[in-house]
């Protein structure tokens, strides 16, 4: 597993832990209310788990396991994948700032924009690696 995948997957596991900690508190609160302000964290729960965990884990595994080129660099445009990783995490935090921390609609918008950018950069990295065994 390449170094960049290791970072991405560790980040995904940390978002999983953070996201389910919020989720578990919310569920417990639904059963035995103790802290109504917890509901403000619902958008963070959703963002951490859908973007931080599921999407991020998928990208980390794809960077590792998609077919590699025969020649160096075996993984093309590695820099694009790194940019995708940075943008995705920036995006997650801007979205959480814009929702849970009420930093404003444009912060939320910028976060979503960073996430779109992350996906485009990752696609630019991965496109050429999505091939059949014959390389076509």
């Amino acid at each position: 597993m390449p170094r960049l995948s290791q970072w991405i997957i560790r980040a995904a596991l940390i978002y999983l832990l953070s996201g389910i900690t919020i989720g578990a508190l919310l569920l417990a609160h639904k059963g035995a209310p103790f802290l109504p302000v917890l509901w403000v964290w619902l958008p963070a729960h959703i963002e951490f788990l859908l973007m931080g965990w599921i999407v991020q884990l998928t990208l980390g595994v794809a960077f590792w396991i998609l077919p590699r080129y025969w020649q160096q660099p075996r993984r093309p445009h590695e820099g694009y994948a790194l940019i995708a990783f940075v943008l995705l995490n920036l995006g997650i935090w801007l979205v959480v700032a814009g929702t849970t921390f009420r930093a404003g609609a444009w912060v939320l918008f910028t976060g979503r924009l960073a996430e779109v950018g992350a996906v485009l950069f990752f696609a630019a990295h991965a496109w050429g690696r999505i091939v059949s065994r014959e390389g076509a």
């Binding site: 389910i20 578990a24 569920l27 417990a28 639904k30 035995a32």
Partner: peptide, 14 residues
């Protein structure tokens, strides 16, 4: 008074 079911469920999943 079944709210504790959700507390237990949250703890188990976590």
């Amino acid at each position: 008074g079944l709210g504790w079911l959700l507390v237990v469920s949250a703890l188990l999943q976590w």
